[in-house]
């Protein structure tokens, strides 16, 4: 039986930007991530996907709701237990240029977690750094260099080594490949897939490149303006998308077969509304080709429409 490693219950993360304006970046989201799976999270800019990821690993405190990690509600843990949970949850950032301190040597960057948790010292620490560098496809002599001496793909490998240093169980990968060139993206994806098996990891993989998400994920969640719109296993999402937003999103991906290019596609009118003032009822209704009267009045329920396939839409 597979166990849920992370359970999210009615999670909310609000940002107050003015005395009377609140952005509901993550608004009442519930889902779970099974142990050992890769959960893909997609959505456009401003959908709240990165906020959700950062809230899960505790970089930001949730405004409301519960995060249950490995059976323990993070809210109810004492300081020391929380520290242990934090050690098991790590994050890899999008921009490999901005997320590495330019004034620190690569070895020290990787060892930050080791030092903070006092895992190794002296010779053991050095050996651990070398081992990590090799594990991500770099070599031990790189430890003495500075981040600017590396290419984007190599820096992302350093970011991965840093996350692995404390032997995490759960890794949030926040758009780890979107800043990289196509030929390098596949290298990093393959590395992440290898590490998942060898280190026994669970991933939350955040991206806006649906092709890569489909490739790497077991299950996928689609977000729009702070809400989860649809959630299912990755094949179902692509063969049988239920929510009109998912349908449009999938239809918008340029196909890499020129003979297919003449197909009809759903082009959404307009831009996503401002997250400071989302539409009433269903947040997608202003751009939805199937919008009905009820969509403006009532927020659709999050329900399991088919087995293991959830969506929030009045059509179902």
């Amino acid at each position: 039986m597979t166990k849920n490693l992370v359970e999210v219950q009615s999670l909310k993360k609000y940002f107050k930007i003015k005395s009377d304006v609140t952005v509901k970046s993550v608004d009442d989201i519930s889902f779970y991530i099974r142990k050992g799976e890769t959960f893909g999270l997609v959505g456009e800019s401003g959908s709240g996907k990165s906020t959700l990821g950062k809230t899960l690993v505790g970089i930001q405190a949730a405004s409301d709701g519960d995060i249950i990690y490995n059976g323990q509600n993070i809210k109810q843990l004492n300081k020391e237990m929380k520290r242990n949970v934090n050690k098991e949850m790590q994050i890899i950032f999008q921009d490999p240029h901005a997320s590495l301190n330019p004034r620190m040597r690569v070895g020290d960057i990787i060892a930050e977690g080791i030092d903070a948790y006092k895992l190794f010292s002296g010779k053991d620490r050095t050996n651990r750094i070398y081992e990590l560098l090799e594990r991500v496809g770099l070599s031990p002599q790189h430890a003495k260099r500075y981040p600017h001496e590396f290419s984007g793909g190599q820096r992302q490998r350093i970011g991965i080594a840093r996350a692995l240093a404390v032997e995490p169980k759960f890794i949030v990968a926040d758009e780890p490949i979107s800043a990289l060139d196509v030929s390098i993206q596949a290298q990093v994806i393959n590395l992440l897939e290898d590490l998942k098996v060898s280190e026994d990891l669970t991933y939350l993989f955040i991206a806006h490149d649906l092709g890569m998400v489909k490739h790497i994920s077991d299950r996928i969640g689609v977000m729009y303006l702070g809400k989860m719109m649809e959630l299912s296993n990755s094949d179902d999402m692509f063969t049988n998308p239920l929510h009109p937003y998912t349908q449009a999103l999938l239809s918008a991906i340029p196909k890499t077969n020129p003979r297919d290019a003449k197909r009809e596609r759903i082009v959404l009118a307009g831009d996503p509304p401002s997250p400071t003032n989302p539409p009433s009822g269903c947040r997608f209704r202003t751009r939805c080709p199937h919008a009905m009267e009820v969509c403006a009045l009532q927020e659709p329920q999050w329900k399991e429409v088919e087995k293991e396939h959830w969506t929030a839409c009045h059509l179902y």
């Binding site: 290419s151 793909g153 190599q154 060139d181 196509v182 030929s183 390098i184 993206q185 596949a186 290298q187 994806i189 393959n190 897939e193 649906l210 092709g211 890569m212 489909k214 490739h215 094949d235 692509f238 063969t239 991906i253 196909k255 890499t256």
Partner: peptide
């Protein structure tokens, strides 16, 4: 060839490993 191989296939449900171009530009 390398470019075409390193993009994931959107069609179909089988999973095959991506074949990246090793090294850097």
């Amino acid at each position: 060839w390398g470019l075409l191989n390193s993009i994931p296939n959107l069609e179909g449900t089988e999973k095959k490993q991506l074949i990246p171009i090793e090294g850097s530009p």
